[in-house]
């Protein structure tokens, strides 16, 4: 069986003279959680719209579950659930009625629809609110109702566009956990887009970094950090007292330390080519300073992101 559920090949979308998506090629495997990461306006939503057949690509092909989304959108829509960002519901209908409508559009009988909708509402924790009008739902509740709405057609793939936008941190945690559970339990492939890096980091198997319509890097978070931070894969944060300039110079002279960033007077962040935490401890203590803490940090997506933009800025400068 085909292991790639989503296949994008040289996908391009041009609006006027603005290229939203530029020659995008991407494969997503069955059962994985893939995070599409990028700042606002990077072309994430446009890519998703093309996957759903809601807009036509200028060139290139999209295949989802083996079907061409442009030519055969109906077969794709039968198998793929899509949660748009800022999803809307019919406000005068209750949460349950909204779900029933979707279920019946998917050719379910009324009985089966009621059964599934009730089960899903329980699963997303909206059991008590199911009879309330959707207009009274909070943002977080709407998002959870949206997830139930996406799941009611028993999809193979779910695509979530900025699913965590505008939900409070606790809500985000619960929501992402729910997505993760669903993906594991029901073997659903999940594609989610976000610009909140650390949230995506928690649950994604792989991420794709998407900026300016192009995919810069694809891989697991650790692969990405290895790619981008090949020379200095270790980040150590020190809290030293009093933090003299002499010590600063001494540290900088170490061959493994490539640069030091001062967070404030006493907190320094060292980018190192190897893990030299024991050596650092010794050096600091021997030079008569107090070491309050030493933390080894892994590069998160925030750093990856930041690094990319720093790199891009320098590119621009070079060109100028």
């Amino acid at each position: 069986m085909d292991q790639h559920v989503i296949e994008l090949e040289k996908l391009t979308k041009v609006y006027g003279d603005y290229t939203a998506v530029d020659q995008l090629s991407l494969m997503i495997r069955r059962g994985e959680i893939f995070g599409l990461l990028g700042p606002n306006g990077a072309g994430k939503s446009t890519t998703i719209l093309m996957m759903m057949g809601l807009t036509e690509p200028t060139s290139g092909t999209v295949r989802v579950c083996g079907y061409d989304s442009t030519r055969n959108p109906l077969s794709v829509k039968q198998r793929v659930g899509y949660l748009p960002d800022d999803v809307g519901f019919y406000e005068e209908l209750s949460g349950l009625e909204n779900l029933l409508y979707t279920a019946r559009l998917n050719k379910m009988s009324r009985e089966m629809a009621v059964e599934r909708a009730t089960a899903l509402l329980r699963r997303v924790g909206l059991e008590e609110a199911s009879g309330k009008k959707a207009g009274t739902y909070s943002r977080g509740m709407r998002q959870r109702l949206g997830l139930a709405d996406v799941l009611i057609k028993q999809p193979e793939v779910i695509i979530l566009d900025e699913p965590t936008l505008g939900i409070d941190p606790e809500g985000v945690r619960e929501f992402l956990q729910l997505i993760q559970e669903l993906s594991r339990d029901e073997q659903i492939t999940v594609l989610l887009s976000s610009h909140h890096l650390h949230q995506v980091q928690q649950i994604c198997d792989r991420v794709g970094l998407f900026v300016g319509g192009r995919l810069l890097a694809v891989g697991t978070v650790s692969q990405l950090s290895q790619q981008l931070f090949a020379e200095e894969p270790f980040l150590i944060e020190l809290h030293v007292q009093p933090g003299s300039t002499a010590l600063y110079k001494k540290l900088l002279e170490l061959p493994e330390v490539s640069r030091i960033e001062r967070v404030d007077a006493n907190r320094w962040r060292l980018s190192c080519t190897a893990n030299i935490a024991p050596a650092l401890t010794q050096l600091i203590v021997s030079s008569g300073e107090q070491l309050h803490s030493l933390t080894e940090k892994q590069y998160g997506l925030d750093e990856i992101y930041h690094r990319y933009f720093a790199g891009r800025d320098s590119d621009v400068r070079k060109m100028a």
Partner: peptide
Amino acid sequence: NKGTLSRLISQPIY
């Protein structure tokens, strides 16, 4: 404007 159109259109209907 209510955001329901994209949800409606992403159901398997023409």
